[in-house]
Write a protein that binds this DNA or RNA. Structure first.
Lengths: 155, 155
DNA sequence: CCAATTTAGTTAGTATAGCTAACTATATTT
DNA sequence: AAATATAGTTAGCTATACTAACTAAATTGG
């Protein structure tokens, strides 16, 4: 209340924006899901594989934390990836409890093919925007990426 | 190739943007999902309920098409909503095969409460952006909403 | 008017993806 | 050496997606 009208208006704007952002994210992913399905792998596996490919090998726990899921969930996701030959478990030499996960060559290949398909699909629809509009979108994405980076796992 | 360098550069930009957009959407929804869990209902039910509340009652098939899922999936989602007293099935008087689904008062209430929680949560994190940055985000959302609107269900 | 077809939804069975609780195995601390 | 802490897995529950096969109702064609 002490902040006056400008602050109140800002809060309202942020709320509206939050709602629209949530809705847009839901509907966008629904569209793209169908393209990703062509890889034969579900979204959780593709996302985990993507982390392994772009951030390099890491332990089970770190992968779970990065993907914001509980350890048992990541255990299953990795089991699925391993069974399809897309990732490998390697026991850590220093600590026998730790398990390093890494993408196989086949995993890298599948990810890149799926990525290409998805990008072409999404891009074909974003293509209706002008250069200037794409720039605005890129700017907004940069901001959003910053918000997500600073967003602590606990809340 | 006939378009020359400017066009090629644009295509590359769009591809990168598409990839970042996809990733941001995935991670954003992962964060928000945890707030939605407080309602006691999953994302598919909340999304279907949201359609019923904001677009009004509709048939099973139309609801499935709107939510971009197959009829059996929507049958189960509605069964869940009905069991919790959040939606109701009403048989169509003109065509006994058709079933109208509508949100109950309790469904509307639950949706609005969840919506408030989710918005407050997302907004609290978007709050770190400046007024100018929020404006950029709003602009980008407008563009994205346009793209989604023009995106035919089939592809 | 009745048989064939089309349309609307449901049922059954499968897979993925999330969770908690309880477990094993290894390290660390006291 | 015993107690505790940490890393992952296993088991079992729920939700959400799919396809295939079904029921029931409406429409169409002889």
């Amino acid at each position: 209340m002490a902040q006056g009208k400008q602050k109140n208006r800002a809060v309202k704007d942020v709320a509206g924006l939050a709602d629209r952002l949530h809705s847009a994210a839901i509907h966008l992913l629904r569209r793209v899901r169908k393209q990703d399905a062509a890889t034969g792998e579900g979204p959780a596996r593709l996302s985990a594989l993507s982390v392994l490919v772009f951030a390099g090998p890491m332990t089970m726990g770190r992968l779970a934390a990065t993907e914001q899921v509980k350890p048992p969930t990541m255990s299953r996701i990795v089991a699925g990836l391993e069974q399809k030959g897309l990732a490998q478990r390697v026991t850590d030499s220093k600590d026998a409890r730790r398990i390093q996960i890494r993408a196989t060559a086949s995993g890298v290949r599948l990810l890149q093919q799926g990525r290409k398909k998805r990008i072409e699909y999404l891009a074909s629809h974003l293509g209706q925007l002008t250069e200037l509009e794409l720039e605005t979108l890129g700017e907004a994405l940069g901001l959003l990426e910053g918000v997500l980076r600073d967003w602590p796992p606990e809340g």
